[in-house]
Design a binder for these strands. Structure first.
Lengths: 190, 190, 190, 190
DNA sequence: GATGAATGAGCCTTCATTCAT
DNA sequence: CATGAATGAAGGCTCATTCAT
């Protein structure tokens, strides 16, 4: 007997991510995914109920990856700037290393696939991050604005930088990352 | 293709923008566009060669609007911070007022519709903006980083703020805009 | 403008009936129907939501035809045997003339298309027929059995005769019909 | 194809019969059959060349069963009415007890599976039955009609009664069977 | 032999585009 | 020009059949 091969799920996911990066969510077919992953169309349906489920499962996966990398090595008791720096670097590294996942998530948000509930879940993951910034705010280390704006500010900065680096296939250095961090830090610090 | 009624083009454009905001670029059909605009499917083909041309023409239109609003009231001879402020406010106002166009442009970038050439054109429009920041850099007013990063930083900040405001249907005040501007300014100033 | 042509519905229905008679309900595809009716596959979907609706609408149609022909010229006040004869002849004539409809209805009953509700409706149509036989029973003209059995007996007789005539492409005469009627009548009369 | 386990064939047959009764011939898949029978899809192909052969073999089986039960205890030398009664009761009992086989045979007849040749074989089985009725006709006991019509008449009567009993899950008594027999007998007797 | 994952032809359906009215 | 029915290529999905384990 040929057991259901879980690595195939990974191959399907990887093929989907590459194709979405290249053609956009609107430009891919199940057939393309199967071909790219190296097997027949029908096989996709052994592992996923239908195309929508494939997209949703991949979305969950990407999201989990993001949340996992995001808080790696995060110590809530560390001084604010240290903790902030840890997460900031985590974010930019994750976004660089898993750029196709970033693109995929963005594409999903403006698609018929992701419902409002999914969007809600999206936010919850960032609660520890939010609390950390609130702590920094209480300590008078960051601007006295609604924390949401500070968070968006950080995300926007990172997202644009990563996109540019990727689309222009640039090599980045630790120094570059520190420069970007400083720019971002100068924006939020009080 | 000799359209007598130019207003129809506008109606098609507007319908498309609304539908893309609601359903994403992958979720719309020519029939949906025609229905929303208030006429028959075939009529769309009197004004546009095909769906791709419709999207591309609308993309150009949105892009022109962006460039037009962007530099409104811009005086290159004004002091740097003043000129920077003018454009910053133009950008955020345009993005708020024409949010559906912003969404549309973003969706297009990761679709099969927009080619590499279109992307190149995209950049040229920002040349005056680039030169202005370079001037500020020469004057020692902004950080000594590659100007590209400063530009991306500004764009990313604005984009995330606008998205959040729109999706949560918030009302914004001039004070809010100034707060956001300050955060952004603190990030790039030297 | 090319108005929606209702005669196309008839052509689709006719094509479907012929194909079901030849290949059975399990042997037909939407493509076959369209080809047989003389137009493109997609056209079927201008007139019917999907394959299931096409089948259901045709089922209703066949059923209405049956009920209509069934009671043609039926006079409830006529003597029992006369009224019974009228309907009996109507039934066998209808079944001969519209044999493909008979086959289609039978096929539908053992298919995933027809629900229990449809089956219920099926029965209601025969109420006048049922009442008539009950009257005959009260008058002591037919056997003192549950009317249902008398009805089924009549239907079964007719159905088998018609099938045989059709599959063997026989020509039938009025005399033949009378012979069959007598056999049936002898069975139910008291 | 050297099946070791003959009981598997029976299980496949039984599963098929049940499924056809529930979903119709057009509503079943090989996978459904295998699941219902309690083993893997591929196993079906150890016992049958393909789906068509499975259906055909089952059709033959059902048919043989029918013929076997049909003439159980039949004595050609017995008086006509006795012999006729024997077979009539055999038929109705078989049709009640093996209703799913009756449904299956009927479904097959209007499917792409059964060819004209199979239909021909079908008739041969009834030759003794035909001869018996012809004898009754020669003896002046039944109506002077083509024997075919008398046979169809009997079959139609039985078929409809059985269907109604089954679909309405009625319990039948020996008295009921005799009443039905009498109705049928009154129809054919001279 | 048994298993069930893999295969891909073929089905139902959608939708960009054409064209008769 | 405007209309929307007609077209048919192409996509999502099913399922009979094969085959590696």
């Amino acid at each position: 007997m040929k057991p259901k091969d879980d690595s195939k799920i990974e191959e399907i996911f990887e093929a989907t991510l590459q194709l979405v990066k290249e053609h956009g969510l609107s430009g891919i077919t199940v057939n393309m995914i199967a071909k790219k992953a190296g097997f027949a169309t029908g096989t996709v349906y052994t592992y996923f109920e239908n195309k929508e489920q494939l997209i949703l499962k991949l979305f969950d996966r990407c999201f989990s990856n993001y949340a996992r990398d995001y808080f790696a090595g995060f110590d809530p008791t560390a001084p604010f700037k240290v903790a902030f720096h840890t997460i900031w670097v985590n974010m930019i590294r994750h976004s660089m290393d898993r750029f196709s996942e970033l693109v995929f998530i963005e594409q999903c948000f403006h698609s018929p696939y992701i419902s409002e509930e999914s969007r809600a879940t999206y936010k919850e993951v960032f609660l520890p991050w939010k609390e950390m910034i609130e702590k920094g705010k209480r300590e008078g280390l960051v601007k006295q604005l609604d924390v949401m704006w500070l968070m968006l500010y950080v995300r926007g900065t990172i997202r644009e930088i990563v996109k540019y680096v990727q689309y222009n296939q640039l090599q980045i250095t630790p120094e570059f990352i520190e420069q970007m961090f400083n720019m971002c830090w100068d924006g939020i610090k009080d």
